[in-house]
């Protein structure tokens, strides 16, 4: 029997981009990935700063989230690279190290939890790629987005560590490209695909480094004539969208480049009305794209 899937939405989407949670709930079941009713997870917890500060509490709190899914006999589909990175790493550590699992369970016992190690976690792009598959995915596309020249940005924390996340080749990733191609998008292969968006530098107070990373990335995509970035992570999304708006003056050599979260484009390709994608709420907008998304002639 296949286990039900619980959506691990993550703090940032729940608060800043709830429309992405809505899109996941609406779209994933339509392509064959059933989603159970929402349950309350806490922060994954965040794999960069929080784990940086305190590795063991990071593991115990992640284990608590995994327990909540295990209690429901469910697997997890996550909507954020950071959440997936935490949950997948913690899960593999606990599944492969009985001594560590026992130690964590001793701490979890204090709040009445116990983890057996039966949960499988996947990022939504991974679930689509592996479980739906490219061929079946194409069969849902009624409106190919062939006017987009998209540069994929899978993001550091979905690619690495590759032996645990098992998503793609971290040095030459192609999975997101193939998923974009399935929607009819023209895929731009570019040097710098694996460059970081820079958001994790900002979270450690290094704003300068963060802006420079953003600029380096945008110049790379611009050089290859991409007209948008496509991501599967709300943190990368925020860095590209809000980051470009906030740092406009520092990015004067860069064409403003809109960024889309994969599910928004999946929705449009499946015939979802433009309004339901919330693309009009983005900080960096392309009027030409929006007209085409609405089905108007540009």
């Amino acid at each position: 029997m296949t286990k039900p899937n619980l959506l691990f939405t993550g703090c940032l989407i729940e608060v800043n981009y709830p429309y992405l949670e809505k899109l996941a709930n609406d779209l994933l079941p339509k392509i064959g990935l059933g989603i159970s009713d929402r349950i309350e997870f806490m922060c994954c917890p965040e794999p960069i700063s929080f784990r940086g500060a305190t590795d063991y509490s990071w593991l115990v709190l992640a284990a608590r989230n995994l327990c909540l899914a295990e209690q429901k006999g469910a697997n997890i589909i996550s909507l954020c690279n950071g959440c997936e990175n935490t949950l997948a790493q913690a899960n593999i550590m606990l599944q492969n190290d009985p001594e560590l699992l026992e130690k964590v369970n001793r701490d979890l016992a204090e709040i009445g939890f116990n983890y057996k190690g039966t949960v499988k976690t996947r990022h939504f792009l991974q679930a689509i790629y592996e479980e739906v598959g490219l061929e079946k995915l194409k069969s849902f596309v009624t409106r190919p987005l062939s006017f987009l020249k998209g540069a994929s940005h899978a993001g550091c924390h979905l690619l690495n560590p590759a032996d645990i996340l098992k998503f793609d080749d971290p040095l030459d990733p192609v999975v997101l490209d193939e998923l974009m191609d399935a929607l009819g998008i023209e895929v731009i292969d570019y040097e710098g695909k694996t460059l970081c968006c820079g958001v994790s530098l900002a979270t450690a107070d290094d704003r300068e480094g963060s802006i420079n990373a953003l600029k380096t990335k945008l110049l790379a995509t611009q050089k290859y004539d991409a007209d948008c970035l496509i991501v599967g992570c709300p943190f990368c999304f925020k860095q590209y969208d809000v980051g470009q708006r906030l740092n406009r003056k520092r990015l004067d050599e860069v064409e403003p480049t809109p960024v889309y979260y994969y599910l928004q484009l999946l929705g449009l390709a499946m015939g979802l009305p433009f309004e339901e994608t919330s693309i009009s709420t983005h900080k960096i907008k392309s009027q030409a794209h929006m007209a085409l998304f609405k089905g108007e002639e540009a």
Partner: peptide, 24 residues
Amino acid sequence: PQAIKEELATLHATGRTSPINARA
């Protein structure tokens, strides 16, 4: 760094890194 201190405090106080607000 200060930003990390703040994140740890927020996570402890709310169980989240992005606190719930009225707008959300």
